[in-house]
Design a protein around this nucleic acid. Structure first.
Lengths: 198, 198
DNA sequence: GCCTCTATGTTTACAGCGTTCACTTTAGGC
DNA sequence: GCCTAAAGTGAACGCTGTAAACATAGAGGC
């Protein structure tokens, strides 16, 4: 039973949707492997399973609501991390760390955000974290093309680290995050690879 | 109904396990979002659902069998791609491309390999793709520490690109794969970031 | 050549899931 | 104060993974 913020049992008053999302976010903290169940959330909120369908067309829609809530949280965490060090290139690096740390702090939510969430299909407008990333890289780069490339690369690295750590492929170690996010060494290898090309 | 390789209906003869895995691999091609069902595989093979439990303790074990089959396929694809260009640094770069291409070619299998598969928990011995990666990076680097760092970074980038493309966050475009895997530009930004640090 | 034992299958059953349909309750506008 | 539309309920369907009891087939020992 989740105690909804204001009036305790004031359903039939429009708060069910928010209560479900709140219960969902709460349920997502603590279970990583298993996925959240619609009936379980209904139970937690004290309502019959079918009541959910008055507020969401199906489970997918409920899950997407959780996903976009998560994206907002992530965006906020990144923005805070960036401004705390004064923005700029240093702030940009900090958003990467914040990204991975967020994933480790909320494994189930993070997974859900990217596997279930509305795909945003190459449009960044509905994704606060994506918007911030685009803004920062465009400030750092001289032209938009470079900026967008950098944005996708940075995103890929951070996302890869996060996922591999969540999946237990790489130790979920804070120092390792820093070591991997620092990509100075990659230049050498890339250069060598170019030398060998005909 | 999947037609198992040798004798058509020679169950009760030890081929059920292989038939199930084959049916699983077949089922995984063609469905991305949904996950494979134990009962469905049993149906495809023409056997009752509970027969599966004579060969796998539970569904997870069956899924892990599929995962390790997938890891073997990936390792083979990468090795082939690397040798085709003559190995070396160029071959190393090629394994990255092969990794992402494999993910795009077998989305459901790839997801399953990394989210469900036996975590290998930081031990690379049961993972052919991981072994190859370790071998190549150690050949490319002067010391083991640099090599392992490079390995994890390269893995992270490729994995991030693959996942973001599978999840529809980034266009699944072949040219984009190359653009993102080429990380020469990252050096500049990283350098700037260092300048600003106190 | 028969008998038995074990590996491999089947049947039935249970609890949980998402979802549909028909129904009831409730709150608010006239 | 009624009436209507919104919101929640209950029963049911087909699906899932899994457990327990039972059936059968084939190999090995005699």
């Amino acid at each position: 039973m989740v105690t909804v913020s204001t009036s305790n049992e004031a359903y039939h008053h429009g708060s069910l949707r928010e209560a479900l999302v709140a219960a969902g976010m709460e349920a997502l903290d603590g279970l990583d492997g298993k996925e959240v169940s619609l009936r379980e959330l209904a139970r937690k909120v004290g309502v019959s399973p079918t009541a959910v369908y008055r507020h969401f067309p199906d489970k997918q829609a409920l899950v997407e609501a959780l996903a976009s809530e998560g994206l907002a949280m992530l965006g906020a965490a990144q923005a805070e991390a960036a401004t705390k060090v004064g923005g700029g290139a240093l702030g940009f690096a900090e958003t990467g760390r914040a990204y991975v740390r967020f994933a480790l702090a909320h494994p189930a939510l993070f997974r859900l955000m990217y596997t279930q969430g509305n795909p945003v299909e190459h449009d960044v407008s509905g994704d606060p974290a994506g918007r911030l990333l685009q803004k920062m890289t465009r400030e750092l780069s001289s032209n938009i093309e470079d900026a967008d490339r950098l944005a996708l690369q940075a995103w890929s690295i951070a996302h890869g680290i996060a996922m591999l750590m969540l999946d237990g492929r790489i130790p979920a170690d804070d120092a390792l995050i820093d070591r991997l996010l620092n990509t100075e060494n990659l230049f050498r290898v890339q250069g060598r690879s170019s030398e060998e090309s005909p």
